[in-house]
């Protein structure tokens, strides 16, 4: 069974760049072409945000791009249709859907998993689906479709719970929230406590690789996060770069270059 995460982390054990975009933003049909541009520019993993009216864990940038995408007409149904050809375009890049639980439940978890897997998507992040509910209700469905859940860990997560989340993760990665706050925030301002937290989790010798997200915005914060993790995740800063850009593809290429140069 193909596992693009295992292949990636075997090939590239550090400095993994995971980029997030909101589906349907800046324009309704930008999603697949932008994913292709980002992968060709040097992104290693791509997260596709499913827009939701009430994104509780997100800061202002993703709130605004989500609202814009919904106004553009993006829906989960349309996104899954658009993604059905994605593996002809991007055969090897690990791809994830990230979204909130309610649109998925209205679509139907079984249909969602079936069509997500059929499109060749590797994993799913649903921040408001806690591990307990996942294990009780949906683990069997995810496994049957060979979809990998990705769970969040924060500086407040106790060691026993980190190990439990690591156990529930099947060959994907753990998403280390960099500090207290929302996506696009300035969690990384407190370098010493962030370094201590990332080093503490590193020392647990977990089964899965770790990517750091929330507040990673540029080359400096990316490289800092990578010191104690396999890579890092950037969303809001990329979306800010796309905002109002005459050519979003050129803006995306420039943004990746600014991280990778």
């Amino acid at each position: 069974m193909v596992n693009r995460f295992a292949d990636l982390f075997a090939r590239k054990p550090s400095g993994v760049l995971n980029l997030y975009i909101t589906a349907g933003y800046p324009s309704l049909h930008d999603t697949v072409p932008l994913l292709k541009t980002l992968a060709e520019s040097g992104a290693d993993v791509l997260e596709i945000g499913v827009p939701f009216s009430d994104p509780l864990a997100d800061g202002p940038v993703i709130q605004q791009t989500s609202s814009a995408a919904l106004r553009n007409g993006m829906t989960l149904k349309l996104l899954l249709q658009e993604l059905q050809g994605i593996r002809q375009v991007l055969p090897d890049t690990p791809l994830l859907l990230m979204g909130y639980l309610n649109p998925v439940l209205q679509y139907g978890m079984e249909a969602f998993c079936q069509q997500t897997a059929a499109a060749g998507i590797d994993g799913v992040i649903l921040p408001d689906l806690p591990a307990e509910e996942y294990a009780a209700l949906y683990q069997e469905t995810f496994r049957r479709h060979n979809l990998r859940p990705v769970f969040l860990i924060t500086p407040q997560t106790a060691e026993a719970r980190i190990r439990r989340l690591d156990e529930l993760t099947d060959d994907a990665f753990l998403y280390l929230v960099s500090g207290p706050g929302l996506t696009g925030g300035n969690q990384t301002a407190d370098h010493s406590s962030q370094d201590a937290y990332l080093a503490r989790v590193e020392a647990l010798n977990l089964r899965n690789p770790r990517l750091v997200g929330f507040g990673i915005a540029d080359k400096t914060s990316f490289e800092r996060a990578c010191q104690h993790a396999h890579g890092a995740i950037i969303g809001s800063a990329l979306l800010r770069a796309l905002d109002g850009a005459a050519d979003p593809h050129e803006a995306a290429r420039q943004f990746v270059r600014s991280i990778r140069q």
Partner: peptide, 21 residues
Amino acid sequence: GRPGIIHGSRTLLMQDEHGQI
């Protein structure tokens, strides 16, 4: 409303066909 998730609770919820509140 139909069953859905708002503010951490599964309850009756006013939402559109796509699950947007």
